[in-house]
């Protein structure tokens, strides 16, 4: 489920989709997940990594990551 290649993410947590002209604000964890997606990690690896570092139950993280991927899909930020 890779991020589209030309998506630009800025230091301040902004995401720009050059194909549509849309800008997005990402909160810190969203920015982190986007960076990991861009680096080519798959979702399972990302989940494992976050579980280790953040104080969150596994099922909640799973739910939230699923929602986040839905969000990326509806914003047309993922490769088809």
């Amino acid at each position: 489920m890779p991020l589209k290649k030309n998506i630009a993410t800025s230091e301040a947590g902004f995401v720009f989709n050059p194909a549509t002209g849309d800008s997005f604000a990402a909160n810190p964890l969203a920015a982190e997940v986007l960076k990991l997606l861009q680096a080519g990690h798959d979702l399972a690896a990302i989940r494992a990594q976050l579980l280790e570092r953040y104080d969150v139950p596994a099922h909640q993280l799973q739910h939230d990551l699923d929602d986040f991927i839905w969000q990326l899909t509806s914003f047309q930020l993922l490769e088809e």
Binding site: L29, A30, R53, Y54, L72
Partner: peptide
């Protein structure tokens, strides 16, 4: 000590 968690969210800037 784990970091405090906040759900990942993206907001479209309109």
């Amino acid at each position: 000590m784990k970091l405090p968690y906040e759900r990942p969210t993206l907001r479209r800037l309109t």
